[in-house]
Design a protein around this nucleic acid. Structure first.
Length: 434
RNA sequence: GUGGGCGUAGCUCAGUGGUAGAGCACUGGAUUGUGGCUCCAGCGGUCGUGGGUUCAAUACCCAUCGUCCACCCCA
């Protein structure tokens, strides 16, 4: 059997495509991503957080132990493969587990850590609006603080990120899951209640009855939701300490002027959450409405073999945030070129490139594009126009004869200038305040 | 994994059982070396792929792949 890939005809008809659910970010999109990323970096830097960069691949067991064996992510959404030595490895489906692993592994827990990360995550799911197999998260982790001021700090940071980006559309949903002990008691009671109404539950919820009954709480199924109307509330099973933490956190948020909505049905899909959890949601993105989610996970470090360490954090789905920015028309203004250098005929190519190099040497801040690809004068100027440059710098036979350069303003009707090439850099510096 | 919509030019989309069109984009010209506006011309498609029905399929049927949306799940 022979592969047909060497047949050019076959290749022409079947070009290699990208992988399903893994998107290319094309040039017209990267601008908004850079705007967002630079904003994030700045805000986090201003809060004293440091970046951490980690491998995309971890041992599979890391995610099994941290995210939880019974979760959908671990059970059916991970990109898991055997390494050449038969070790089971996995493309990270989220960032927190890796951060905890690295912090434990490198002994960073001797003092609290304020960390952020950004990068691609991988989950094998059917792609949909706001949900892709390779997607990007920006995450923040605050490690080593027991008190709710840590929860308040990360929520305040998230709120500030929205403000920085000019987003006022997101609403904060908040819930208190409580300690493992309170959750366990509630779980029993909820299970008992739901078993009595099992005939009204859908298939998925029935399966969850045994594995993870709390997850049924955020079901979208109307019938299931009807059953939940009468269900016992998690709030009633919280310990005094949990309640105190909750009210303290709410007070802090109130004092900072951060609005929130208490949602007792908000449970998270990853097993490691406990204490306060939150989501920032929008109504503008269809079904995948959570742009940012996080909470406290004091138990996580122990689950992956570290010593008990309090921790809180959140992650932002960047594709979703970009989509939101686009609906809100919060696009940044682009920084256009100052100049487009063109020559009237290809016989002056060398003169043009020589001039360009000397200008770049003298003016490192100069944003200039040099013409490539020949064409008529008309098309050369049209290219200059399309480049959105402020002015065209033109050289041709006449200009070269007496060492001048023509400056043509493309965005105004200001008169065309002829300037000696020795004075061009000075003129550009002055005109564009370089 | 389940359900539904959609695959026609680089992009956005019309269209018909008799092998295809528009707008935008691109190239050239009207304007010997001067963009934008206008006009003219040109380039560009085995109508996703494979099979079936038919004298004839881009159109109808089946399959398959891709894509989008929703379920599920989550950021």
């Amino acid at each position: 059997m022979s592969l047909s890939t060497s047949n050019p005809d076959h290749q022409a008809r079947n070009p290699v495509t990208g992988v399903r659910g893994m998107n290319d970010l094309l040039p017209h999109e990267t601008e908004i991503w850079q705007f967002m990323e630079q904003g994030f970096r700045l805000v986090l830097q201003n809060h004293g957080y440091q970046e951490i960069r980690l491998p995309l691949i971890e041992r599979t067991e890391l995610f099994q132990h941290s995210i939880g064996d019974s979760t959908d992510i671990v059970q059916k959404e991970m990109y898991t493969f055997a390494d050449r030595n038969d070790e089971s490895l996995t493309l990270r489906p989220e960032g927190t587990a890796g951060v905890m692993r690295a912090v434990i592994e490198h002994g960073l827990f001797h003092q609290p850590q304020r960390l952020w990360y950004m990068g691609p995550m991988f989950r094998y799911e059917r792609p949909q609006k706001g949900r892709y197999r390779q997607f990007h998260q920006f995450g923040v982790e605050l490690l080593g603080y027991q008190g709710v001021e840590a929860d308040a700090e990360i929520i305040a940071i998230s709120a500030r990120l929205w403000r920085f980006l000019g987003i006022d559309d997101l609403k904060l949903q908040l819930n208190m899951l409580g300690s493992e002990k309170s959750r366990f008691r509630y779980r029993q009671v909820l299970q008992t209640y739901l078993r009595q109404h099992a005939h009204r539950l859908d298939e998925v919820s029935k399966l969850r009855l045994d594995t993870n009954p709390l997850r049924i709480l955020d079901s979208k199924n109307p019938e299931v939701r009807a059953v939940l109307e009468e269900a016992p509330l998690l709030d009633d099973f919280l310990s005094e300490e949990d309640k105190l933490r909750c009210s303290h956190l709410c007070t802090l948020l109130d004092d900072m002027g951060i609005d929130y909505h208490k949602n007792s049905r908000l449970v998270r899909g990853l097993d490691y959450y406990d204490g306060a959890v939150f989501e920032w949601v929008t109504t503008r993105l269809g079904a995948q409405n959570a742009v940012c989610a996080g909470g406290r996970y004091d138990g996580l470090a122990e689950k992956i073999g570290g010593s008990a360490t309090p921790a809180a954090g959140f992650a932002i789905g960047l594709e979703r945030l970009v989509a939101l920015l686009e609906t809100l028309n919060q696009l940044p203004t682009t920084s256009h070129l100052h100049a487009y250098l063109l020559y009237t005929s290809d016989q002056w190519t060398s003169a043009a490139f020589t001039l360009a190099e000397s200008l770049r040497d003298k003016l490192p801040q100069l944003r200039m594009m040099v013409h490539c690809g020949g064409g008529s004068m008309k098309s050369r100027l049209r290219r200059a126009d399309k480049s959105k440059a402020e002015c065209a710098l033109i050289i041709g036979e006449e200009e070269l004869r007496d060492s001048r350069v023509q400056i043509k303003h493309m965005r105004s009707n200001a008169e065309t200038l002829l300037i000696h090439r020795d004075q061009l850099a000075a003129w550009l510096q002055e005109h564009f305040r370089l």
